[in-house]
Computed example of a mutant assay.
Amino acid sequence: MSVQDLPKLELHLHIEGAAPPDFIRGLASEKSVDLGGVFREDGSYDYRDFVHFLSVYEAATSVLQTPEDYARLLTAVLEESAAQGVIYTETFVSPDFCGGSDVEAWKDYLLAMKEAAERAEARLGIVSQGIVTCIRHFGPERARAPARCAAETAGDWITGFGIGGDEGKGSLRDFAYSFDMAREAGLHLTAHAGEWGGPQSVRDALDDLHVERIGHGVRAIEDPALVDRLAEDGITLEVCPGSNVTLGVYPSWGAHPIQKLRERGVRVTVSTDDPPFFHTTMTREYAELERTFGWEPADFLEISRTALDAAFCDADTRAQIAEKLKDHPQ
């Protein structure tokens, strides 16, 4: 069996960042919103570097203004994921973009997304969960509102809490209050670190926020003691190789440390991050890993089982996905 035909699990996907450019352009046209500067002439998203990417991301998100907009967006995202062979996905959603982190408004957005997720599961077979994120460059005080939204809607579709945004802004310890709130509500925890912030940002996420997973985390390879700690503690990395290469964290797929991390015993998974922004898909990620590192179906199935073990889902969902993986023994 080709590796492209294997069932895939994705743990690191931003809902707005996964929006097809045509979807955003169409919504902007419906709402008569001018998105000048967001797109290149070929129709793809236009940005210069990571910081500019964040600005373009937020500009594109500005056309998403109602619960129905997010329901349509999630439908489009899950259709694309299912077309890539994804059977389980976790997507980051931010109440900052869904009702301004007002709890009652957030509940309306959440209901619309949950219903869209249920329809997609029934129609396409793809199972999804939502992870609420606060935005690091919005600051720690503003992070408390999305944490409250997450805490008050924990369970069912919302199963995790995390932090994204510019790793160069502020200190992770300043967000501890929000993470404590989410933890007390029973939510699983993850944090973007070790992409731009270096190995110390990974240590900070572990020591100050006590997360179970790390978004990216690849810069840990620069600190052998940290790599040992990740392996010994069973911390899972949500690795997004195509994103890292496109943004210049690494100059090429061959220079990416995902294989070295695996060899050192670190639990790694594969995701696309913001796929249309980075011109990737789960199919392309698999193809590049096969081409660059010689990964075979057994390697990818190991990655999928690692993702399932680390997934922020309940036992019944885990068993359901495990059954699908059993159809593809190593």
Rank of each mutant, 00 (worst) to 15 (best):
A60T: 04
A117Y: 15
A145W: 01
P140I: 05
R123Y: 15
S62M: 00
Q65A: 14
R144V: 05
L111V: 12
R144E: 13
D69Y: 08
S62E: 05
T61Q: 14
R136S: 01
E68A: 13
G100M: 08
G85I: 04
I87V: 14
T61N: 12
E115D: 14
D69G: 06
T75N: 09
G100Q: 09
L74Y: 05
V132K: 01
V63L: 02
Y109R: 12
E68Y: 11
V127N: 00
G100H: 03
W106M: 05
P67A: 07
E79W: 02
E79L: 06
A112E: 01
A122Y: 00
L64I: 11
A76I: 08
K114T: 14
R148L: 13
T66L: 02
L73K: 09
R119C: 08
T75H: 11
C149I: 14
A145H: 02
L64A: 04
E68M: 10
A117M: 08
A145Y: 00
S81T: 07
Y70V: 03
T89P: 07
A71N: 03
Q129P: 00
R119E: 09
G99Y: 01
S128M: 10
R72W: 12
Y109A: 08
V77Q: 05
E115F: 05
S128Y: 04
S62L: 01
K107W: 07
P67W: 12
I135T: 15
A150L: 07
P95T: 03
E68R: 12
P95F: 01
Y70C: 02
S81L: 09
D102M: 11
E121S: 15
S62V: 00
Y109G: 13
M113S: 09
W106L: 02
F138W: 13
F92R: 08
D96V: 15
A76T: 04
L111R: 09
D108K: 15
S128C: 08
G130K: 12
A122I: 05
I135Q: 12
A105C: 06
